[in-house]
């Protein structure tokens, strides 16, 4: 496997360092060749930078990719936005040689060159494609049979597809496959692919952001969902923080929000506190408790066998 740099991005390192923790735990225990490198900046974030200055968006992303190109590494990120933004610019420059030349003229003056050779992957498709379901299954100590999980892909895990090319952009499957591999049921629901709406918080429309979160949380609650699983810090902010804010106002959904690496870590036998589940705003203990009680029961096979072999009247 090729070495890869991890692109943590601003949001995880600023607000959710525990996501970095669980990510490192799983990368370590799969013995993956991940590296931390100097020199990254913000990817940059699309809505705050591209809307103001497209050129700044392009050169900043191109520089980040150049750092990885130089080392002949690939790049993997636990943030969907980062990968999507970097890949968007990589795609734009690969398709426009003139623009690429302009960008490289600027980069040359700081001693860099964008080649676009590094493969840019989000953590979920990376685990699906590069680590593989079989390797994951071998690591499971205790699976999630009986648990009902709602997945939130996050728009930028799969879109824009011309740049990311990692799954179906409208009906993706890879995250579902991973969740099933962990033994859980991945619920199919109406709002599964609905955008989280966190972007509305960034334009001073907090109530509307809450409205978007509410739509999905309501449906999940009605389906008896045990946890919402996602892999994007922005979506996490939307469903964990904002759900908590609604709870404080008396509107309770009680849907724990769990990062993909946390779920994987739990299945591999790490403790909830080691993975940082105790640092979430919305309480994750109902999820952990139910899971523990399910696995405390004897395996289904044994129960049936016992029944079949039990003494009876016949």
């Amino acid at each position: 496997m090729k070495e890869f740099a991890v692109f943590w991005g601003c949001t995880i390192q600023t607000r959710f360092p525990f996501i970095e923790k669980s990510t490192r735990i799983v990368l370590e225990s799969f013995k993956l060749p991940y590296r931390d490198i100097d020199g990254f900046t913000c990817c940059p974030e699309r809505s705050l930078v591209n809307n103001i200055d497209h050129g700044a968006f392009v050169v900043t992303a191109a520089r980040n990719v150049a750092l990885v190109d130089e080392l002949d590494y690939d790049l993997v990120s636990p943030c969907t936005g980062c990968v999507s933004n970097l890949a968007t610019v990589k795609g734009e420059l690969k398709a426009n040689p003139r623009e690429k030349a302009e960008v490289n003229k600027l980069l040359k003056e700081v001693g860099r060159e964008f080649k676009g050779t590094a493969k840019l992957q989000h953590l979920v498709p990376f685990f699906h494609d590069t680590v593989g379901v079989n390797a994951i299954k071998q690591k499971i100590k205790k699976d999630f049979s009986g648990m009902r999980i709602g997945i939130h892909y996050g728009c930028h895990m799969v879109r824009p597809s011309h740049a990311l090319r990692n799954d179906d952009p409208l009906e993706p499957k890879k995250f579902d496959t991973l969740i099933s591999a962990l033994g859980a049921q991945s619920l199919q629901f109406m709002t599964k692919m609905m955008c989280c709406g966190q972007g509305l918080d960034r334009i001073d429309e907090h109530d509307r952001a809450l409205h978007f979160a509410r739509i999905k949380l309501k449906e999940l609650k009605s389906l008896g969902c045990d946890a919402l699983v996602l892999c994007c810090p922005s979506c996490f902010l939307q469903f964990d923080n904002n759900q908590f804010l609604m709870e404080k106002e008396g509107e309770k959904f009680g849907i724990p929000v769990i990062y993909f690496t946390e779920l994987l870590g739990l299945a591999m036998g790490y403790k909830p506190e080691e993975l940082g589940l105790d640092l979430h705003r919305v309480d994750c203990t109902p999820f952990v408790k139910k899971w523990e009680s399910l696995s405390a029961r004897p395996p289904k096979e044994d129960a049936i066998d016992d029944g079949l072999n039990a003494p009876g009247d016949i």
Partner: peptide, 25 residues
Amino acid sequence: RLGEPALPARKKLGLPEPKASGADE
């Protein structure tokens, strides 16, 4: 960047020192 790494929290979690940012460049 859009924020700086949360150093005290990193320490508590046992995370390594964050890598140098590319701010100057």
